[in-house]
Write a protein that binds this DNA or RNA. Sequence first.
DNA 1: CCAGACGTTGTT
DNA 2: GTCTGG
DNA 3: CCAGACGTTGTT
DNA 4: GTCTGG
Length: 225
Amino acid sequence: MCGRYALYSGKELIEKVFKAPFKQDFYTPNYNIPPGTTNPVVLLGKAREAGISGLRWGLVPSFAKDDKIGFNMINARSETIDEKPSFQKPFQRKRCLIPANGFYEWKKIEGTDTKIPFFIRLMEDEIFAFAGLFDSWQQPNGEMLFTYTIITTTANDLLQPIHERMPVILDSDQYDNWLNPLNDDYESLIGMLKPYPTEKMRAYRIKPDVNKTSNNSPDLINPVV
DNA sequence: CCAGACGTTGTT
DNA sequence: GTCTGG
DNA sequence: CCAGACGTTGTT
DNA sequence: GTCTGG
């Protein structure tokens, strides 16, 4: 799955890679992004121009009674994404990209409570995008709350020893088709939700400092020697 | 028809 | 909103 | 994901 | 144990 990630590229690089401007000036590099926080997400605006906005991680469906449901909606299974009531509509019209430099997974040691954290990134530390969905929900005060979820798939050979599931990573030539809300070729959209190639990724063990979300520094992604 | 759920992961 | 279960 | 809290009334 | 907050 994916329950923690990092985004630390410079603002200018993010805007360049995703061909989209930040809509608000809220960005700071973050090595420890947990669910429930507001982070940069790329989506198409009404004028069909892509922009980067701050959305809260943990999808709250438009029909939800309260926003607590978001704590359980940090990931969406690609296998059932066009069936689940909470994800079906967003999959059809509210797809988004979540910029990232890497993500964290915890490997459970069998028969113990021990969990060892790993950092997973692309081979040359390139910035990339998770495939995601977003939705909006009307808060009691009348304001709209925008939230997102990260789509997961089966682990590739690199991740398998660490964890059963991994987030879907898209290549840049897929961005436009994924974001376009008018794209209703759902078969080909679902076809994009595959494990990223093992040979393009790296995974290594890190210190448990990442466990605490108040820890946030480049040291978090240093390999354990 | 109305009521109630709507989710994932991991663990058992 | 939409689907499933009763 | 992990860490940390988990409660009410009334009074200051 | 379970939920909330980060």
